[in-house]
């Protein structure tokens, strides 16, 4: 866990140090040569803005790579899985099994790779450009991109919940009463996507509680940790950007603090997309385990 936090916090910490140095230089230049204020602002925004994109674009690239791998995995493994399950006899009567989810998982991954990642990068760029030339703002376009992506994510998650709970075989395990306050906390305090996190937690929780007797609870926990660690990575990065924005605000240029805030917002949307991908990874892994169990006659 600490390794993950250290790996995530490293680049934003360096970025923050760079922002402090650049801001100090800009403030000194403003004091010494006030007639070049415009140029100082431009250089500050270009240098700090280019540096600020780094960790954010890294997170988007990680997501892009993950989605690409998942697409390959789905296209390769799903026909085999589906055929194997049908051939194993009685597999279709397994609880929690719903072929329609294939469609949504695959669709989510393809849409995630083809549309969401480019749109997120465009949203970063538009935020940056509207800070660079404040007279020509693109803030509403980037806000609309974020809102549209969040809408798409919420529809996909709603479909997951619908299809997975449609079999009626799944219910929250006994820990649900304990989980409610945590869900309420998350929903209120994680900006923008708090309710998505709790909804996905609900879906994955329902699914894994149904799967635990078949696949083994330790394996399920291991799968959950593996598939959710990219989500934690992106969520931490988003919060670090918000922190940098908050810490920069007293001394840095106000456009810079606003820009970091916007990057943080966009990364929260990315985190929502990562949740879908994490669920897809989890789902594929669990289905593979079930298939092996069914073929081995232990299902």
């Amino acid at each position: 866990m600490w390794e993950l936090i250290a790996a995530v916090a490293g680049p934003p910490a360096k970025l923050f140090a760079l922002i402090i140095v650049l801001s100090a230089a800009a403030l000194a230049a403003d004091f010494a040569v006030p007639q070049f204020r415009e140029w100082t602002r431009l250089f500050l925004l270009v240098s700090a803005g280019a540096a600020a994109m780094g960790p954010a674009i890294d997170a988007v690239r990680m997501m892009d790579g993950l989605v690409g791998k998942m697409t390959g995995l789905f296209l390769g493994i799903y026909p085999v899985l589906a055929a194997g399950m049908a051939a194993a006899g009685g597999a279709l009567s397994l609880i929690n099994w719903n072929p329609a989810v294939f469609l949504f998982v695959q669709g989510a991954v393809v849409i995630g790779g083809k549309w969401m990642v480019p749109l997120l990068i465009v949203s970063f760029i538009l935020d940056y450009l509207s800070r660079l030339v404040p007279e020509i703002p693109f803030t509403r376009i980037s806000e609309m991109i974020r809102v549209t992506l969040l809408g798409a994510i919420s529809v996909i998650i709603a479909c997951y919940s619908l299809f997975i709970t449609a079999t009626g075989a799944m219910a929250w395990s006994s820990g649900s009463a304990l989980a409610e306050p945590i869900k309420a906390l998350l929903r209120q305090h994680v900006p923008l996507i708090g309710s998505f996190i709790t909804d996905t937690m609900g879906v994955v929780g329902k699914y894994s509680s149904g799967m635990a007797p078949i696949a083994g609870s330790y394996l399920i926990v291991a799968l959950l940790v593996t598939s959710l660690s990219p989500v934690a990575y992106v969520l931490l990065t988003a919060f670090l950007y918000k922190w940098i924005a908050a810490l920069c605000e007293p001394f840095a240029h106000e456009d810079l603090a606003g820009f970091f805030d916007d990057i943080g917002k966009t990364l929260f949307v990315l985190c929502g997309i990562m949740l879908i991908v994490a669920f897809a990874i989890f789902y594929t892994a669990v289905l593979s385990i079930i298939l092996i169990k069914v073929i081995a006659g232990a299902g």
Partner: peptide, 10 residues
């Protein structure tokens, strides 16, 4: 384009 406009503005 926006870069050119920013420089022009400055």
């Amino acid at each position: 384009l926006m870069g050119i406009l920013a420089v022009t503005g400055a």
